[in-house]
Computed example of a mutant assay.
Amino acid sequence: MGISERKERERAEREQRIIAAARMLAERDGWASVTVRRLAQEIEYSQPVLYAHFENRDAIVGAVSLKGFEELGPTLRASVPAGASPEEAIEAVATAYLEFAFERPALYEAMFVLPSGLRFAKSDTPQVLRETFGAMMGVVDRFCADAEVATEAFWAALHGLAELERHGRIRAAFRSERVRHIVAMFAKGN
């Protein structure tokens, strides 16, 4: 291995260490505690080293978000059992999405609430975001002619439910009933 390959590998490892430390701090202490200064202290790098990898905190949040989408897309796809009916498939994805939001609250917040610089439905949308959206669209398209718009509505409904429940605005005990209502709304459109 040449010097340039080693340096590139070391750079990538530093970047992954920064991302992991940001996620760990956010999970432990909340995103308000994730600052460039605190991250530098946590991983024992200088702030300029962090800025050599990430322009600002939002860029770090964006990198954490990308890791989250690498987890969410496969989670949604794996949630659908083989031979599931369209209604069972959409219910499985809705349930998996909400479980993801509640099992990984700091990661979910980075992905869907905090400024991250990531954009959906644009020419520069990262492939992993497209794949995650596709995992949702794959269960919605059976119900609607305009699958993209319907998937956006499905996603918006799930995100709204996740945020309302995460903040104690709706009763957690009725999550599965709400999911069944969403499934019924899509099934009626069929």
Rank of each mutant, 00 (worst) to 15 (best):
G2T: 14
E5D: 14
E5Y: 12
R6N: 11
R6C: 05
E8I: 05
E8F: 04
R9F: 03
E10P: 14
R11Y: 11
R11E: 14
A12Y: 05
A12V: 12
E13A: 10
E15F: 05
R17S: 10
R17W: 09
A20P: 08
A21I: 06
A21E: 09
A22S: 05
A22Y: 05
A22G: 10
M24W: 14
R28Y: 11
R28F: 12
R28N: 12
R28E: 15
D29F: 13
G30F: 11
W31T: 07
W31V: 12
R37P: 06
R37A: 12
R38K: 11
Q41T: 07
Y45V: 10
S46K: 10
S46A: 13
S46G: 13
Y51G: 11
F54Y: 09
F54W: 06
E55K: 14
D58Q: 13
D58N: 15
A59N: 08
A59G: 13
A59E: 13
I60R: 01
G62V: 01
A63Q: 02
A63T: 03
K67F: 07
G68I: 15
F69G: 03
F69R: 01
E71P: 06
P74Y: 13
S79K: 03
V80D: 07
P81E: 11
A82G: 05
G83I: 13
P86L: 02
P86A: 04
E88K: 04
E88V: 03
A89E: 06
V93S: 06
V93G: 07
L98F: 02
E99R: 13
F100R: 08
E103A: 06
R104C: 04
A106W: 05
L107A: 02
E109P: 14
A110P: 05
F112C: 09
V113K: 07
P115M: 04
S116P: 03
S116L: 04
L118D: 00
F120E: 03
D124M: 10
D124H: 14
P126A: 01
V128R: 01
L129W: 02
L129S: 02
R130P: 05
E131R: 15
T132S: 06
M137G: 00
D141W: 08
V149Y: 03
A150M: 03
T151Y: 06
F154I: 02
W155L: 14
A157D: 13
A157G: 15
H159F: 09
H159D: 12
H159V: 07
L164W: 09
H167M: 15
R175D: 08
E177K: 15
R178D: 01
I182E: 01
V183I: 10
V183W: 00
A184R: 01
F186I: 03
K188H: 07
G189N: 08
